[in-house]
């Protein structure tokens, strides 16, 4: 199973992006390439976690407005600008869900659930779907976010770490624990 590589940048790409960011700090019009480059990704990230498309578009605009407003404080740390945008998006989402809990939604494809079974070294069976849905829905918000990033959005641990502001190793350890939980949930009913 391959992971999404659109996030990864070469050193040259990172340098080019850095130059754009520095230019945008002095003139907001220079923010346009970043807006074009990341609009779809940020919308995808937000809409993945809710049902309401209009709200997702509104929130996307808000994320970019916040990014532009605060770009003066942005410090280049050798990672793509996207990681900063994702953190703003995450914060906006949390704010929304605190205010309107019913907005939270999880979206997955059948292939994603099959992928989880592969990772837990279990065969994929149709009968697992309701069980997986239940178990994932009951995960605490941070764990659920990990599952979405890893299995539903196919992101690498390095990227997950940068989005969640944790180390890559920490992301791996946490994911290992979550997989254990999921595996236990899948296999327990079989044994019973």
């Amino acid at each position: 199973m391959s992971y999404n590589s659109r996030y990864h940048h070469t050193a040259v790409q990172l340098h080019e992006e850095h130059l754009i960011i520095e230019a945008a700090k002095t003139d907001p019009n220079h923010f346009a390439p970043l807006y074009d480059k990341y609009y779809k990704q940020i919308f995808g990230y937000l809409y993945q976690r809710m049902d309401d498309k209009d709200t997702a578009f509104d929130l996307t605009s808000q994320v970019f407005l916040k990014a532009l407003t605060n770009i003066g404080r942005y410090e280049f740390k050798g990672v793509p600008f996207a990681s900063w945008l994702y953190r703003i998006a995450h914060s906006e989402l949390m704010q929304l869900f605190r205010e309107q809990k019913n907005k939270r939604c999880i979206n997955a494809d059948i292939g994603d659930l099959r992928f989880i079974c592969e990772e837990t070294q279990e065969f994929y069976l149709e009968e697992y779907i309701p069980l997986l849905k239940k178990v994932i829905s009951e995960l605490d918000p941070e764990d659920c976010q990990m599952v979405e990033l890893r299995f539903f959005e196919r992101r690498a641990f390095k990227e997950i770490g940068e989005i969640m502001d944790i180390t890559e190793n920490n992301a791996k350890v946490r994911m290992y624990r979550i997989l254990e939980k999921l595996k236990k949930a899948i296999t327990s009913p079989k044994k019973n």
């Binding site: 779809k40 939604c105 979206n107 997955a108 059948i110 829905s137 009951e138």
Partner: peptide, 17 residues
């Protein structure tokens, strides 16, 4: 409140985005 769980929801087209 547990979140709603959708399977295979239609994608949003690039045009719409």
């Amino acid at each position: 409140m547990q979140p709603k769980f959708n399977i295979d929801r239609p994608k949003v087209s690039d045009d719409e985005i």
